[in-house]
């Protein structure tokens, strides 16, 4: 009896040590392949939609852009190390148990070090009508996070042109506002550029209710899993949802690159002028 007990203890110890020593292979893969990640909420239907949605978005990215993400992964904030991830999709369900304080510490570090969370309340159809919506659940989940002051995404935000030119950010629903870090006061007049020079720090959170994962979701055959709108208009909205997804991931990965590109012609012009002066 005793040797058996010792042996099992030894095995437990060894696995514990190696679990601490070796990073989770799923996360290593996520770091290598820029895999998109979602938070596992415990609601099987929502989690399946998240995974399918991110898979659909990954396929679109791979087909259309240089970003070629691997298979999406589900994250349990209580357990997983977030420092290997860049983007986290977090559907708000209202039934999810709030993460532990340690998990919030990790989430805050994730946000501070350049990660981004997209909170999706998936209530774009009913929000603002006065009925029960995801606001309370979102507040409960996000209160312990270090989130800067938020404002609706303005029309000149880099998110509107990080790959496609977009006017709004539809998902399965069309009309709800998307919120991002508020631009600092006085940013309007920066350098007389046509766009505001928002700090290169990317907004650490985006909050909206358009149920994007459901619009992106594809099944194993590559067919859409959820209906969006009706008829041709609906398909157009789904395309726009994909474009938002592409812009979003570009924004996560390249920051304000597109905002800066406005200055590139000016910089090149300056090189030209200096050359003339020197000659």
């Amino acid at each position: 009896m005793r040797p058996w007990l010792l042996f099992s203890l030894l095995i437990l110890w060894v696995t514990a040590v190696s679990a601490q020593e070796e990073p989770d292979p799923r996360l290593v893969r996520a770091a290598d392949e820029v895999a998109l990640a979602y938070v596992i909420t415990g609601d099987a239907e929502v989690d399946a939609a998240s995974e399918a949605g991110l898979r659909g978005l990954s396929q679109v990215l791979t087909a259309r852009t240089t970003v070629e993400p691997g298979e999406p992964i589900g994250i349990d904030p209580d357990r997983d190390d977030l420092s290997l991830l860049t983007f986290l999709y977090w559907p708000v369900t209202g039934t999810q148990a709030p993460p532990s304080p340690q998990a919030y510490a990790r989430l805050n570090h994730f946000l501070r070090s350049g990660g981004m969370i997209l909170f999706d309340t998936r209530d774009g159809d009913i929000a603002g009508l006065g009925g029960p919506d995801g606001t309370a659940a979102l507040q409960a989940l996000a209160a312990p996070l270090d989130i800067p002051p938020l404002a609706p995404v303005p029309q000149d935000h880099v998110l509107t042109r990080s790959f496609y030119l977009l006017r709004n950010f539809p998902g399965r629903y069309l009309d709800s506002d998307v919120w991002a870090e508020a631009p600092p006061a006085g940013a309007e007049a920066a350098e007389g550029a046509p766009f505001r020079n928002l700090n290169d720090g990317v907004s650490p959170v985006l909050i909206g209710g358009n149920a994007w994962a459901e619009a992106w979701a594809v099944d194993d055959n590559g067919l859409p899993m959820f209906s969006v709108g009706a008829g041709f208009e609906g398909e157009r909205q789904r395309e726009m949802a994909y474009r938002f997804g592409v812009n979003l991931i570009m924004y996560v990965l390249t920051g304000n690159y597109k905002s800066d590109q406005v200055h590139v012609p000016a910089l090149l012009d300056r090189l030209r002028e200096e050359e003339e002066v020197v000659q």
Binding site: V67, D200, V202, I249, L253, T254, Y257
Partner: peptide, 15 residues
């Protein structure tokens, strides 16, 4: 060559 998580590191440094 492609958007990747390290790109913003370069941008943060150089900007």
């Amino acid at each position: 060559g492609a958007p990747h998580p390290g790109e913003r590191t370069w941008r943060n440094l150089l900007k």
